[in-house]
Amino acid sequence: MTLFFIVTLNGLTLAALYFLAATGFSLIFGLMRTVNMAHGALLLLGGYVGFSVVEATGSWGLGVIAGGLAAALAGALVQFGILGWMQGDELRQTLASIAISIIMADLMLWHWGGITYQVTLPELLSGGQRLPLLGVGYASIRLALMAFALVIGVALWFLIQKTRFGAVIRAGVDDQAMLRALGFPIKRIFISVFALGGMLAGMAGVVAASALSIAPGTDLQFLLSSLVVVIVGGMGSVGGAALGALLVGLAEQYGLAYAPTYGAVFTFAIMVLVLAVRPQGLLGRAEK
């Protein structure tokens, strides 16, 4: 039973991380129809910058903020300087974002080298906690990660469902042309949402570098997981990203624990099943 609890907690940890990574990706796709293949690179950039800031200042919180801001800025630049010029031409954007992703990965390799980094944890998060009901001990940072994902998820839900800016985003997801016709400066809104998506990815990068570790290749790993999560959960919705992340994270960990040989199969079996039965994703809306 202890194994089951531990594996479940591992699954939830991974789900929290996948959610943080995928939700920005999903938001960007939902509003702009841009499949941003540089999303993993934004996450890795956030992780590296976060690591460097934590090393320099000793403050973990500052590192998370700096990582988020760096990736937000990079995301805004990518949309402003490159992808925004080909708005509406999704294939071109996707290809361009692959190129951006490769260039960014190379620049990061140049600056931070090919070694693996792990962010030094603050004292508060470095130990473990004995969980009262389950009777198992678990790393504090991983518990904090789940709480962090929960807070971010609720904040995003509030932003999108309850605020003025959220109404603009929801309207844009429904119909970009009409949003433009109402007088909204769509280019600036796109850049802001790209920055928001980048910020989420960057913070996820710092958190990933704290709970796990980051190295060249982490970008592609999280890009792939984000793609799977939004395909399963449905593009463009916070709830979809959460559900997709839960399913994929848990499936991956249960698979690794109980059927190690076929561990990776479960994730992709879920994806294939969803694509076959409900191609818009579990919580996605069908295209008209």
């Binding site: 003025r164 800016f165 109404a167 309207a171 949003l179 109402l182 400066p185 809104i189």
Partner: peptide, 19 residues
Amino acid sequence: TLFLAVAGVQGSWAQVWPL
């Protein structure tokens, strides 16, 4: 929808307080 129509004409959109 009508709120957005008004806000759009006024050019205000970057507001994160509740509707």
